[in-house]
Amino acid sequence: MAENCCDHSKEVEKLKPTLICEETLYDVAELFKAFADTTRIKIIAVLKEDELCVGAISELINVSQSAVSHQLRVLKNSKIVKHKRVGKQIFYCLDDEHIKKIYDMGLEHIIKG
C-alpha cells in the first residue's frame, strides 16, 4: 500500500532559516545533561537559596564532601555554578538567574503537572 505523501516544501523553506546550528544544539543538550542527576539537582536546589561551601552543601543534601566536590566540578564545567575563594574556603553559587529559571520551570512542571 502506498504511503500518502504531501508537499512540505513551503514549510521546510519557511523554517530552514530559523534552525539553530548543530554546535549550539549540542551545547544545549550538554546543559540539560548536567541537570540529569539527582545529586546535582539537590546541589542546585540549595545553591538557589544561598552561597555555600562544600561542607555545608554536603551536610544539607546528606552526600559525602568528595561526591559533592565531584558534582560541583561537573556543574562548574557546564557553567551552572561558579565559585569564589574567601580565605581558605571556596564558596559556590549558581552562575546566573537563567539557572534559577531553568530549575524553577522544571520544578513547576513536575509539581503542577
Rank of each mutant, 00 (worst) to 15 (best):
L31G: 01
L31M: 10
L31Q: 04
L31V: 09
F32L: 15
F32Y: 15
F32S: 14
K33Q: 13
K33L: 06
K33T: 14
F35K: 06
F35G: 03
F35T: 07
F35I: 03
A36L: 05
D37G: 06
D37P: 04
T38K: 09
T39A: 09
R40P: 04
R40G: 06
I41N: 09
I41S: 05
I41Y: 02
K42R: 05
K42V: 01
I43F: 04
I43M: 07
I43G: 08
I44N: 06
A45S: 12
V46H: 01
V46P: 02
V46Q: 03
L47P: 07
L47R: 04
L47E: 13
K48Q: 14
E49A: 05
E49C: 04
D50Y: 00
D50G: 02
D50M: 01
L52A: 02
C53H: 03
V54P: 00
V54F: 00
V54W: 01
G55E: 05
A56C: 00
A56W: 00
I57Y: 02
S58E: 04
S58N: 03
E59F: 01
L60P: 00
L60T: 03
L60D: 04
L60S: 07
L60K: 15
I61M: 01
N62G: 03
V63R: 14
V63E: 14
S64K: 08
S64Q: 05
S64E: 05
Q65P: 02
Q65H: 01
S66I: 06
V68A: 08
S69N: 15
S69I: 01
Q71T: 02
Q71D: 15
Q71H: 15
L72F: 08
L72D: 11
L72C: 11
L72I: 12
R73I: 10
R73L: 14
V74Q: 06
L75M: 10
L75Y: 06
L75K: 05
K76P: 00
K76N: 13
N77H: 10
S78C: 02
K79L: 08
K79C: 09
I80M: 10
I80S: 13
V81A: 10
K82L: 07
K84A: 10
R85D: 04
R85E: 13
R85W: 08
R85K: 15
R85H: 14
R85N: 14
V86R: 13
V86E: 09
V86H: 10
K88H: 14
K88T: 15
Q89M: 11
